[in-house]
């Protein structure tokens, strides 16, 4: 599945990653599980990366190794793109509902 932009409108949102250990294993699992609940094509790009990554791919999201303090950009395209981005940004803002350890 391509995550590169197409001619259709894609919408974007950004959010600061504040979770203290960053986008590690459990947050990555939560993010990709949530992303897969939407039909929209969803891509993620931390500030320090050049390319967009498929937000539904657990292996690729984990490989980003995004750290605390980086801004995460999300881009979505599809009928439920708006609510998909709300969900993505919300999860990051809530620190992945991680009780912390």
């Amino acid at each position: 599945m391509s995550v590169q932009p197409t001619d259709q409108e894609a919408i974007e949102r950004s959010v600061l990653l504040t979770h203290k250990v960053g986008l590690h294993a459990r947050p990555s699992v939560k993010l990709t599980k949530l992303a897969k609940q939407y039909d929209a094509v969803i891509a993620i790009k931390p500030d320090d990366r050049e390319d967009w990554t498929d937000a539904k791919s657990i292996v690729k999201v984990m490989a980003l190794k995004a750290k605390q303090g980086v801004t995460l950009h999300f881009k979505a395209e599809g009928s439920d793109a708006e609510s998909a981005l709300d969900a993505m940004v919300g999860l990051v803002e809530r620190n992945f509902d991680d009780g912390g350890d």
């Binding site: 294993a25 990709t32 599980k33 897969k36 609940q37 791919s57 657990i58 292996v59 490989a63």
Partner: peptide
């Protein structure tokens, strides 16, 4: 196991579950 479970949880087919777990080996 974690990768396969994460992929399977979304209802992905067996081929996708296999691909995701095996993709891990190709990561730098």
């Amino acid at each position: 196991a974690v990768m396969a479970a994460a992929e399977a949880a979304g209802g992905s087919p067996l081929s996708a579950v296999q691909a995701t777990a095996e993709e891990l080996m190709g990561q730098p």
